[in-house]
Design a protein around this nucleic acid. Structure first.
Lengths: 338, 338
DNA sequence: CTGAAAGCGCTAACAC
DNA sequence: GTGTTAGCGCTTTCAG
């Protein structure tokens, strides 16, 4: 029995299917695109041919014809990954060298590689962009915007005519937190810098300052991480050997852990003498002892909402709100007093 | 002064550049592909036009013409992400619904969606595949392999004619570890199950069993996580309230933490009474107290090597070895005795 | 050294 | 309902 050679290495195209089914390629196209004008009978024939040949439409060709690639660029700082992140870093570095795109675009702090990324995003004809918590300069954003690709900022409050954002109001969260302490008469509050999340730290500072100002005080508790420090963990370990404060606010879980460990090891009781709050709670803030009080951020929703909004934009739907705020919950644990 | 309308929303193509430079599109193509046959003078003209118009080649069209997409599919279980992973989960779930491909393909345990993933990978014409630590069934792999797309397994030891692997020999690592304990006369050793990393657990078990067998003993210390358990963390928390062992081996950091916390809270001294080893060390295994002894796995290298090998395969280079083993280092910390 | 033209696989008018 | 055909933007022979 002679069939279309199944062992031929040639990828099966819409032509082969058409031939096999004895119809034109237009008809096959209609079938795979669920057009309802095709007669039930022909449709069946085509579908059988598709299955028989194992045909799968070539998305690249579809992309060319439709002028849309059906992929979206996700731009994200490589520092955002934890363990598995390292694997990604490796993958992506080399992929970049060899010009293979993993459409996960990561940015590394310092290096001015934004142009390269914009380039890649444009060339790959991403239909939309999701930009996670990153520090593009206004000029770079301008360039990105000039291509008028729908974009949503993730975890950052910013928007423009072509973009929306999904964010958590860290400023408000920290404002409320600070306010509670100030009302208790506690103002020895410090905020730890986080080079990897400058935007968030800025928001945290804004929240603290807002509270201080409202109370007629001046906030001076910002603790920068010096350039020479190996890591913020190292620096904090040293800093808290000598200094103590009533309330320490950190963004990342690892920083909160550094404070926790150092204080404990130096006989400073937590939370009696020093209280610690981590803004971005994680599984780990719950797994250490004492557990670290933190904000519960709806990470999943942040992602899904961003994507959902982007698809709406791509769909040409009318979007009234451009900024979507998600709520947080303060989880009071062992690192703060009741 | 009249220039090609810069405010026209139409994306600039190779034609526009050709017109602007007063050459044919073939020449432009040669220039952007660094062909050396173009006269220096024309090349310059073209390059100027490119810059003037801000031309960027359309990778989709190139993909069609060259029959290669220059992107590679990365398949990875969604459970592999930690915090940032959750964001991804959200992004990807919705992206899938709307048929937008983030070329990061994630698989979720349980659901039989492998076919869908294979489909996507094929349709998107990925030139290569990296498969991270996942549990495709042999049949599914068969299908994937049938397309003869170069593939590298990451963190799993497996290979075939079209695929290579980059892995860490967990079995050997655990074998050595177990051997040390057995030689000290300690055989109350348990291995904790990890539903999210079945392959690795299998390797761990193999290592332990190998050591036991060599010592003429039978290993019976496998602790499965029952189906009804909310999470392995919860289960372990309960289990170690009532049971104690000399050495506990876990794969994930969170499981080691669960053991650590529970033992400590129940007055079991670590490492004096119970020792804990986490196979996959992380930043967190170092950040808790006591620090958890673990294996240092070269995550970055795992990723970069995998990608490097893949590019070689895509390049048609001859590859003699198909399996690449990377080394681990045992980091002895506070959760084990010296 | 450069241009003309075919073709990559598919979609979308436009005919019939 | 279904087939024909003209692109989508680019690469690559093949002429000149």
């Amino acid at each position: 029995m002679k069939t279309i050679a199944k062992d031929s290495k040639k990828r099966v195209t819409i032509y082969s299917v058409a031939r096999e089914a004895g119809v034109s390629l237009a008809t096959v196209s209609r079938v795979i695109n669920d057009s309802d004008v095709v007669k039930e009978d022909t449709k069946r024939k085509v579908q059988e041919a598709i299955i028989k040949l194992g045909y799968k439409p070539n998305a690249v060709a579809q992309g060319l014809a439709l002028k849309k690639s059906t992929n979206i660029a996700l731009i994200i700082p490589d520092s955002s990954f934890t363990y598995i992140g390292k694997v990604f870093n490796g993958l992506l570095d080399v992929a970049k060298i060899y010009k293979y795109n993993i459409i996960l675009h990561t940015t590394s702090s310092g290096v001015n590689e934004m142009n390269e990324i914009v380039d890649n995003v444009i060339k790959s004809h991403a239909d939309g962009i999701i930009l996670y918590n990153d520090y593009f300069t206004p000029e770079e954003l301008e360039i990105l915007n000039s291509f008028e690709i729908p974009m949503v900022y993730l975890d950052v409050r910013a928007s423009s005519k072509q973009s929306c954002c999904v964010y958590v109001d860290y400023q408000q969260a920290v404002y409320e937190l600070t306010m509670r302490y100030l009302q208790k008469g506690i103002d020895d509050i410090v905020v730890i810098d986080d080079k990897k999340n400058p935007i968030n730290v800025k928001q945290i500072l804004a929240g603290v300052q807002q509270a201080f100002e409202e109370k007629g005080k001046k906030f001076e508790g910002f603790i920068p991480i010096p350039e020479y420090a190996h890591s913020s963990y190292d620096f904090l370990t040293k800093y808290f050997k000598k200094n103590r404060h009533k309330l320490v606010i950190t963004y990342r879980d690892s920083q909160a852990l550094a404070v926790l460990n150092t204080c404990t090891e130096n006989g400073i009781n937590i939370p009696e003498e020093t209280e610690v709050v981590c803004i971005k709670g994680s599984r780990y803030t719950d797994m250490v002892r004492p557990q670290i009080s933190s904000f519960d951020v709806p990470a999943y929703d942040l992602g899904s909402l961003a994507m959902r909004i982007l698809t709406k934009m791509l769909n040409g739907d009318d979007i009234q709100d451009r900024e979507f705020r998600l709520n947080y919950v303060f989880k009071e644990k062992g690192s703060t007093k009741r």
